[in-house]
Simulated scan of single mutants.
Amino acid sequence: MWWKEPVTTLKGVGVKKAAELAALNIFSVGDLLEFYPRQGAYLDYAKLKTIKELEVDNSKQIFKATVYQVKNGYGASRRSYTSVTVRDETGYATLYFFGGQRYKAQKLKPDTMLQITGRVRQGRTTKSVSEVDVQPLEQDEGKTPGIVPVYALSGNLTQKNLRTWVSEALRLAAKDLPESLPAKVVSQCNLPDRYTALKNIHFPESWEALRRAKQRFVFEELFLLQCGLLYYRQQSHDNREGIKHAADGALVKDVMQGLPFELTAAQQQAWREISLDMQDKKPMHRILQGDVGSGKTVISALALAKAVENGYQGCIMVPT
């Protein structure tokens, strides 16, 4: 099975690169496919501006430029900062870094191409950019408009390395990728198939395709977790016996009648299900979920009354 093959089977991954991938917990081709881009870290070259196009309205904008020089300085309040002057074919801009961000800025070398996001305002001589986030770019990046991923890196790995190897893994997946969800579930929930979702989480065709890919994998994670919980529940039911309570008696009815309001239809339904679970010899596994003020506490009180009238003790634990 190709997805279990070591990453060294991919072109360009030798022993050294494999060790750097291992630092990211990537050992197999399948691990690489499931090494998703950093949360929210995609470059949309269609939205990149030139420095001349940046609006000085203190809004967050994205542009591409090359490092010209890096300097350290002090503000009016003697607060230290690092300024990075960048340029493109249309002009210059100055990026300002404070606090812990200065270390990252000081490592930038002249002629390094950057994708820059930050708040733009007019400075004394150039456009000034604060709250800066920068991503180094390969020299040939951005020539073709599109959305590309940004991955976490280790060692001497580059974005180009990861993108190339992921692309190769996706070519293998296109031929033979097993589906992890039942076909009926995929169809009923209108989810993309696993290959399409993988392709669009790495190299999205559009922002909508990326949204649907993320939705698919969130659903998949919760679905598999639920399957595991159901399996555990089934095993617990097979191997353990709980306390079998009698049907609702006088105490439960007294509590119900003593309430200064009548239970809603939803509250009555929740109580019926919990009451029947308590009357079963199998252990109850249930979460009662609802908004603030929806009546969860009154249902808990009825369960306590049922336990007491069956000769047991009970308590409500409130963790907030």
Rank of each mutant, 00 (worst) to 15 (best):
G99V: 03
G100A: 06
G100Q: 09
Q101C: 07
R102T: 03
R102K: 10
K104E: 08
K104A: 12
A105N: 00
K107P: 04
K107D: 01
P110E: 10
D111P: 00
D111N: 12
D111M: 09
T112V: 07
M113S: 10
M113H: 02
M113E: 12
L114P: 00
I116P: 01
T117D: 01
G118A: 03
R119C: 12
R121G: 07
G123Q: 06
T126D: 14
S128E: 15
S130Q: 09
S130V: 04
E131S: 13
D133K: 13
V134D: 04
Q135L: 12
Q135E: 13
P136S: 09
L137Q: 07
L137R: 06
L137T: 05
D140Y: 11
E141H: 07
E141Q: 12
G142L: 11
K143Q: 13
P145T: 05
P145K: 06
I147Y: 01
I147H: 01
V148Q: 02
V148F: 11
P149V: 09
P149M: 07
P149I: 08
V150S: 01
Y151Q: 03
A152K: 12
L153F: 04
N156E: 12
L157E: 05
L157S: 01
T158E: 13
T158H: 06
Q159L: 02
Q159Y: 00
K160Q: 12
R163D: 04
R163F: 02
T164H: 11
W165P: 07
W165L: 08
S167L: 08
A169F: 04
A169V: 04
A169I: 04
R171Q: 14
A173K: 03
A174W: 07
D176Q: 14
D176P: 04
L177V: 05
E179S: 13
E179Y: 10
P182Y: 04
P182G: 05
P182Q: 08
A183L: 12
K184Q: 09
K184T: 00
V186Y: 02
Q188V: 10
Q188S: 15
C189T: 08
C189D: 09
C189A: 15
L191F: 07
P192L: 14
D193A: 13
Y195F: 15
L198P: 09
K199Q: 15
K199G: 02
K199F: 13
N200G: 09
N200M: 10
N200A: 11
I201C: 06
I201N: 04
P204R: 05
P204C: 03
E205M: 07
E205P: 00
S206Y: 00
W207T: 10
W207F: 15
W207V: 06
A209I: 04
L210D: 06
L210F: 03
L210R: 11
R211F: 15
A213Q: 01
K214Q: 14
Q215T: 13
Q215M: 11
R216C: 08
R216W: 03
R216V: 02
F219R: 01
F219K: 05
E220A: 06
E221V: 05
L224T: 05
L224V: 10
L225A: 14
Q226A: 14
C227W: 02
C227F: 03
C227S: 13
